[in-house]
Amino acid sequence: MIEIRIDGKTIRSKPGTTVAAAILNAGTDHFRASVRGGRRGPLCGMGICFECRVKINGAPGQRSCTILVEQGMEIETAANEDSAADSHG
């Protein structure tokens, strides 16, 4: 199992899991805030809709459905109040 942190909480994930799947498995569906502040989560699952963007290891705007979990990854979603402002990126 791979250990990652989602909004400060440690989560264990199977290798080969996408970051989007890991976030959903952790019970969060509020990935990003839309430009008018709406709650958004993944739609297309294949990297084209950009709805699943989150901050990964400090880099904002990463499409979580196209990235596999890696040991020690730090993930921030819009569900984490503090990061909401950055998640537009």
């Binding site: 899991t17 996408t18 799947a21 890991a22 498995n25 569906d29 709650r39 993944p42 739609l43 699952g45």
Partner: peptide, 21 residues
């Protein structure tokens, strides 16, 4: 349709293939 939890059909399948339980 923009609510979290409303996925594409193929989209949800892809997410499940990616490990979504």
């Amino acid at each position: 349709w923009t609510l979290p939890g409303v996925f594409g059909a193929g989209g949800l399948q892809a997410l499940v293939k990616g490990g979504f339980d």
